[in-house]
Design a protein around this nucleic acid. Sequence first.
DNA 1: GCGACAG
DNA 2: ATCTTGTCGC
Length: 218
Amino acid sequence: MVEGSRNRDPGVSLDDMIEEQRRAASSVILKPIDLEGVSLVGGVDVYHSGGYSHASAILYDIRSKTVVSRSSSLAEEVFPYLPGFLYRRERRLMVEAVRGMESSPDLLLVDGHGLAHPRGAGVAVFVGLDLMMPTVGIAKSLLVGRVGARENFHAPLMIDERLVGYMVGREGSKKYYISPGNLITVEDLPDVASLWDFRYPEVLREADRESRRKRMIG
DNA sequence: GCGACAG
DNA sequence: ATCTTGTCGC
């Protein structure tokens, strides 16, 4: 068991989790995505409050800028927040919420990191493998890595000498970090971020709002 | 040993 | 991420 916390899955050791992450990292499929074929973009986020976790998934038509479908799932909080192990806390509920939508997204945005993780296996990697669909991790702050020289609205995010993602954001606005989850490459990401003009993606804003709203209701 | 640390 | 009042700045 991991020291310093109760309230976690019984029988799961830190070594088990690290091993699970290594397996996930080696299972990831980094292949170019067909951007032309992306019209439905999904976003998923989890809100934790009062011992419960609420996930909301939103399906968004990027062309008409309208919400096509919403889905939520609720569960008791199953795991504490441990930096580097967010997947234990949010993965299952995120996958449930996405599966509850009326159709599958062409690309799913996950609140959290993907490849930009100490073992290359952030929550966006797990969700992408579980659903076997293209995912990208979108995080509001950095877990690991260093940011290189900016060009236009993005700057490379490096772990050691390896490019694992980008810092993205327009001049004067809050930056965020984007990295591959599954079925997409790092090189795709600048074009992907251009889909929403390098601003923080509206579909994730909506997923965030929706998951908070669920907490207020029940 | 110390600091850093997605949500 | 949550718990939380008033307060400062665009």
